[in-house]
Design a protein around this nucleic acid. Structure first.
Lengths: 152, 152
DNA sequence: GTCAATGCAAACTCTTTGCAATCTG
DNA sequence: CAGATTGCAAAGAGTTTGCATTGAC
C-alpha cells in the first residue's frame, strides 16, 4: 500500500507538531526517518529504513535510526509490528486459536472462539493474496499485571 | 493455559508417530523438548524451554533446543509465534488496521475493515485481562509470490 | 551557550554453524 | 554399523550503549 502524497504531507505536519509538543528537537535525521517510514505502506525493518534514508543523508548511522524509531514509538507516532522486540516464541498448540498478549509482561495466552475462526474478511483481501490462516491478536493488560498496578 | 495430562499424552503419541513417519530419529532431547513445549500453554522462547528441559537432561545444549524446534516446525508439529524469525518491523500507520502477511516473502500489507475493527471477542477474554486493541493477522501467499510459483 | 542528538566503535543478546564425539535404528 | 544427532565453542545477525563531537533551540 502506497500512501498518497497529501496524507503524507499532513502526517509530516502532525509529526513536527508532536515533536515540538514533547520538547524533542527536530533534526534532519528524525525528519527523514519519519518521512521514509510514513511514505511506505510496507513495514520495513530498521536496516531497510536505514538504506532508504541514506539516499538523502549519507552520513546517517544505523544506531540513530534505531534510536529514532524507539523515540517515535515512545511518542506514539510509530508502532512496532507484532512482538517485534522479542525473541522467537514457540507454540505446540496446533489447534486453531487466537492470542491474548499482555503489553506489560509480554505473556501470551491462547483463547478459542468458533466465530473468530471463521471471520469474514473484506473482499479487498483477494487482491492482496490467498488466505491460508486467520488469527486474532488481542493486546491488553493481563489479570496479573492489572492486579499489580491497579490495586492500592 | 495449562494443557491437561490426557491431551498431552495423546500429543506425545502423535509426536512419536510423526517422527517415525518422517524418518527422523527419536532422541531423549527431542522427546523432552516436545514434552516441555506441549505441556505449557504459554509460548516460551528457546531459552525458557532450554531451562525447563535442563531439569531432566542437564547436559542438553541450547543449540540443540533451537535445532529441535526448527525441526518440529518443519514437521508441522510446532509453530513459531508471529513473524518470529524476523527482525523488528515498524509502522507509521496509526489508523486501526489489520495485516496480511505473506508466508513466503514475508511482505506485510495493511488492510482496513470496519467490521474487523469491532470484533466480538468471547467472554472468556475477561478472565485473561483487559482488551486495549484487537488486530487481525491474515497469513497466506501474496499475489506476487502466487504468480511466481503457480503460473507455468 | 547549553544540552540534546549524532556518529563511531565496541558490546551485547539471540541464534546459527562447523566439527568431532555419541547415540539411534 | 552407518549415518543422523548431539555438545561444544566460535561465528553471525540484529540491536544497544558509552563517549566525544556536532548541532538545534
Amino acid at each position: 500500500m502506497q500512501i498518497n502524497p497529501e496524507d503524507n504531507q499532513a502526517r509530516l505536519e502532525h509529526f513536527q507538531k508532536a515533536l515540538k509538543k514533547s520538547g524533542v528537537k527536530m533534526t534532519v535525521q528524525r525528519m527523514e526517518v519519519f518521512r521514509e517510514l510514513a511514505g511506505t505502506g510496507s513495514h520495513p525493518d530498521a536496516e531497510t529504513l536505514f538504506k532508504g534514508v541514506r539516499q538523502k543523508i549519507p552520513m546517517i548511522s544505523l544506531d540513530t535510526v534505531y534510536r529514532t524509531l524507539w523515540l517515535f514509538i515512545d511518542l506514539g507516532l510509530v508502532s512496532a509490528v507484532g512482538q517485534s522486540k522479542e525473541r522467537a516464541r514457540f507454540d505446540a498448540n496446533t489447534l486453531q486459536h487466537h492470542h491474548f498478549v499482555c503489553r506489560q509482561c509480554g505473556r501470551m495466552q491462547d483463547f478459542y472462539s468458533d466465530s473468530l475462526n471463521r471471520l469474514a474478511l473484506p473482499d479487498s483481501i483477494e487482491q492482496i493474496g490467498t488466505v491460508e490462516k486467520t488469527q486474532v491478536e488481542v493486546l491488553g493488560l493481563c489479570a496479573d499485571c492489572l492486579s499489580k498496578t491497579d490495586n492500592p
